[in-house]
Design a protein around this nucleic acid. Structure first.
Lengths: 123, 123
DNA sequence: GACACTATATCACAATCCGATAGATCGGAG
DNA sequence: CTCCGATCTATCGGATTGTGATATAGTGTC
């Protein structure tokens, strides 16, 4: 078996913003603005990922190697030339999976507690 | 029926540390050191909740009304007098449930993506 | 009388968030 | 062509949060 050069668990826990970005990139390449809209749509506006958080987080994810940038700029005739496309790295995918596992276990544990199952009040 | 003076969703997303503390308090009253040990046991050491994070987070949770302190100090003959006991407030419980719902939806969405299910095989 | 554990607490620095803002480009209406 | 809203990337600066180190103190134990 191959050993990873970096241990995915060392990156946990991810911040909400970083995890949302990684999840949004799981489908494939996306550019920044598309990530913003996807997170907004997926969370029904609960999580507000503005440009500041997005681009600073993206920069950090690039620096730590969880995300890679596609060096090729798209042909201006086919796509908007300003766009920069990002994708999950192999490490980024492992980290995202590890974080998903962690959250899943946590949610399962929380649901086991009686206080967590009821939505609280009846109408 | 009473309407909540504060909207639980306004507190989302919770930081990892704060959510862990709320989950640890879901079973009932606990003192700080017990929370620390419970989080350490529950996360198998992945999340390290040291005294700095614990007590500063607790102070913030108290200030925002998600957690209440039991004013009574235990009888020294029955329990360690130094202990301070904390419990979830009604609002804190609602916030914890809302965050659990959010995380559950996110994990479910992530699991739907092909890239997130396998621990990664190298072809 | 030193060492480990329990228990609470703060400091100072680092990491991250995020509203505001800005500049560039695109697409279409007038 | 010009204006204008949407798209797209980007940074600044203040605020929030995290955390290793450290302090204090009681309890137990060797």
């Amino acid at each position: 078996m191959e050993k990873s050069p970096k241990e995915p668990r060392a990156f946990l826990p991810l911040t909400a913003a970083m995890y949302q970005i990684l999840v949004a990139l799981a489908d494939g390449e996306r550019h920044g603005y598309a990530i913003m809209r996807e997170v907004d749509a997926q969370t029904v506006g609960v999580i507000k990922l503005g440009p500041a958080t997005l681009y600073t987080s993206l920069k950090r994810l690039l620096a730590s190697g969880l995300v890679e940038e596609n060096g090729d700029r798209p042909d201006p005739r086919l796509d908007d030339e300003r766009r920069r496309y990002y994708r999950l790295s192999g490490l980024g995918r492992q980290v995202a999976i590890a974080e998903t596992d962690r959250l899943e276990a946590l949610v399962t544990a929380a649901r086991r507690k009686p206080a967590f199952n009821e939505a609280s009040a009846s109408p």
